[in-house]
C-alpha cells in the first residue's frame, strides 16, 4: 500500500486515535476516584471551617441547590452552609458560607477555589480578610478601604478592590440563597 494513499492516512490516524482513547480510558478509571476524594475532602474542610464545632453534616438538596446542615454532638443544629460562586478578577471564585439561622449572622466563610492574582487578590484566602465576615448580620454589605466602623462594612484589601468586592457580592448572594430557603422555617 502506498504510504500517502488516502486509505493509509485514514488508517494511521484512526489507529492512533483508538490507542489514545483506550489509554486515556484506563487513566480516567484509575485517577477519577482520587480526584473525587480530593474534591470531597476540600469541601469537608471548608464546611468544618465555616461551621466550627460540628459533629455531623447532612447534605440536603432544596430547589436544585445543595445545603449542608450541621449538628453538634447533642443533635442541635449549629447552622447551615452553602457554596456559592461568582466572577472575580481573573476567574470564578467559589466561597463556602456558614450561617447561624437563630442569630441571623454569618459564622465564617471559606474560599474553596479562586484564580486571583497571587499577593493581591489571592489574599482573600487570608484570615485577615475572612474575619471581616465573622458575626456579620444578614443583609447588604459595603466595602470600605479603612478599618470598619459599621457592622455592615467590610474592609477591602489594598490593591485588590475588585476581588474583595466580588467576595462581598458572593457572600451576600449565598446568605440570601440560604435565607430564602430556611428563613421562613
Amino acid at each position: 500500500m502506498e504510504k500517502n494513499s488516502n486509505l493509509n492516512l485514514i488508517l494511521v490516524l484512526t489507529t492512533i486515535g483508538i490507542v489514545s482513547a483506550l489509554l486515556l480510558t484506563f487513566v480516567f478509571e484509575w485517577t477519577s476516584p482520587y480526584i473525587a476524594a480530593n474534591e470531597a475532602e476540600k469541601r469537608r474542610n471548608a464546611i468544618n471551617e465555616v461551621l466550627p464545632g460540628l459533629e455531623r453534616v447532612e447534605e440536603v438538596e432544596i430547589d436544585g441547590e445543595i445545603f449542608y446542615e450541621a449538628y453538634d454532638n447533642q443533635g442541635m443544629q449549629i447552622g447551615v452552609a452553602a457554596q456559592h460562586s461568582g466572577a472575580g478578577y481573573n476567574g470564578m471564585i467559589d466561597v463556602m458560607v456558614g450561617v447561624d439561622l437563630d442569630s441571623q449572622e454569618v459564622i465564617n466563610i471559606s474560599i474553596v477555589g479562586h484564580e486571583e492574582t497571587p499577593g493581591l487578590g489571592a489574599r482573600i484566602t487570608e484570615n485577615e480578610y475572612k474575619s471581616n465576615y465573622q458575626n456579620k448580620p444578614f443583609g447588604d454589605y459595603t466595602g470600605v478601604g479603612t478599618p470598619t466602623s459599621d457592622p455592615m462594612e467590610v474592609q477591602t484589601i489594598a490593591g485588590a478592590t475588585i476581588s474583595s468586592e466580588a467576595v462581598i457580592r458572593i457572600v451576600e448572594n449565598a446568605v440570601e440563597k440560604i435565607n430564602t430557603v430556611y428563613g421562613g422555617r
Partner: peptide
C-alpha cells in the same frame, strides 16, 4: 490529558 488527571489526583 494523562498529566492533567495525574496531577489533579
Amino acid at each position: 490529558t494523562f498529566t492533567d488527571y495525574f496531577v489533579k489526583a
